[in-house]
Write a protein that binds this DNA or RNA. Structure first.
Length: 410
RNA sequence: GUGGCCGUAGCUCAACGGUAGAGCUCCAGAUUGUGGUUCUGGCUGUUGCGGGUUCGAAUCCCGUCGGUCACCCCA
């Protein structure tokens, strides 16, 4: 049987790498005062149709369940999160700083950095309109990446603002209801021939050259200036750049938006996010109105970049050596003592040691070899010396005799 | 979804019309109470799948499934 396209098996070595990423995400989020939450993997399809915007709806893994409900595997977290927050908005002190490490499903053609199933760190700050929140969230993203061993030479946060584009549009007589259509054109302007952009923009009476000129400007608009200032105060200024070419596809973004790219431009976007100040209001039919912003960072592109950057790869490999199968290997040299050896294994495990041993009779040399291969640091040999055992340090090859019934104390 | 390239042992690949091979891994032995080296031996394949051309197909052709790259979009 073949795997479904875009889905992954996680053998122990893969699982260790995945967990290294998820563990690092969680550790840095907690350092920033974020708390973890989660929601359902399966949701009614309406949840996503309501607000996500065209792209994601077309990529849904959806089906009709046995109760004839039309459901979809989650492709993103924001709709579930906004529902959860709207339902109990008064229960939580503002601002909320919540994170989640969900597995997402998107029906796309798979490619480097893009699978049909992936993990994504989601972090959101809800209930704070100040740009200080934007800065805090972006600082979190930067520090998450630094925790993997990346520096300002490896990645950059491209900062932009939908508000800036809104102002640009309305100042030239654009109608607010055409805004999203305009954003879509701007989003693609960088990689579209200028004549075509001109044609697309003509209904709005705007010239492609104006758009491209604004895109190239590095002048931070009001909100962004504070974000950049905050990040600079933290010593993180080198990680961000103003780049109005970033617009983002999702319909619900309102103010600050950003995307994170590797400097080498070998990979897809590492992370992306922004403000969605109106979404809570929309999702709750006006009952809850809280400003919000969030970020997503996927494990697939991140793993690729870790592999691209030697320092990050070494950091990962070093972390993996802590994930050895066992620390102590008990060698049974005399089969008559197997019962005693099992008792010893049990006492060591009760004491919290990671212990393994041969389930079936094996030559002593073979057992030592297995101890090596499992990465044990010590071998405990149960044999002629009983009731004492030989404890051998597998790195230094030093041996000493210890009474079996006091070994657990070490 | 559209187009280019690719699918051979668990892994990396060779053979490119004439009997499917190598390295690594794995298993066993040298070494019946002492280990990552070395040496020796061994296992593993409907050459992704289906059809066609041919005396003969892993090799050429068509289809299909999967991978990959580009477009698209983004994590």
């Amino acid at each position: 049987m073949q795997l479904l396209p875009g889905f992954r098996d996680f053998y122990p070595a893969d699982c260790a790498r995945r967990n290294y990423i998820l563990d690092t995400w969680r550790a840095v989020c907690r350092r920033y005062g974020f708390v973890e939450y989660d929601g359902p993997v399966l949701e009614p399809i309406e949840l996503y149709k309501k607000k996500s915007g065209g792209e994601l709806v077309g990529q849904l893994f959806d089906f009709v369940d046995k109760g004839e409900r039309h459901v979809a595997l989650r492709p993103e977290m924001t709709p579930s999160l906004t529902r959860m927050v709207a339902a109990r908005a008064k229960d939580f002190r503002k601002p909320l700083k919540w994170f989640c490490v969900p597995q997402f499903f998107r029906y796309e053609k798979q490619q480097r950095g893009r699978t049909r199933e992936f993990y994504q760190l989601n972090a959101d700050i809800i209930g704070e309109e100040s740009p200080a929140a934007d800065a805090e969230l972006i600082a979190l993203v930067i520090d998450v990446l630094r925790a993997f061993g990346f520096t300002e030479n490896d990645f950059v946060v491209r900062l932009s603002s939908r508000t800036a584009w809104e102002d640009f549009f309305t100042a030239r007589g654009g109608n607010p209801e055409d805004e999203y259509a305009f954003f879509q054109i701007v989003d693609k302007a960088e990689r579209t021939p200028i004549e075509k952009t001109d044609a697309l923009l003509s209904p709005f009476g705007i010239k492609a050259e104006e758009v491209l000129a604004f895109m190239r400007s590095k002048e931070p608009v009001a909100g962004l200036a504070q974000v950049v200032g905050d990040l600079t105060s933290r010593g993180l200024g080198a990680f961000v750049e103003i780049d109005y070419a970033v617009v983002r596809g999702l319909a619900y973004y309102t103010g600050t938006v950003f995307e994170v790219f590797d400097r080498g431009k070998n990979e897809r976007a590492l992370a992306g996010g922004g403000r969605y100040d109106n979404l809570l209001n929309l999702m709750s039919d006006g009952k809850t109105n809280l400003p919000a912003l969030g970020v997503g960072m996927g494990d697939v592109v991140l793993a690729n970049l870790i592999n691209d950057v030697p320092a990050a790869r070494e950091k990962l490999e070093a972390a993996l050596t802590n994930g050895r199968p066992c620390d102590v290997y008990v060698i049974i040299a005399k089969e008559e003592l197997r019962g005693e050896a099992l008792k010893l294994v049990q006492s060591l495990r009760d004491a919290g040691q990671e212990v393994d041993y041969s389930l079936t009779p094996a030559k002593v040399g073979k057992q030592f070899q297995t101890a090596e291969q499992l990465g044990a640091s010590k071998a405990v040999l149960v044999g002629d010396e009983w009731p004492q055992v030989k404890v051998k340090d597998l790195a230094t090859r030093e041996e000493r005799l210890v009474a079996a019934d006091s070994l657990w104390r070490e």
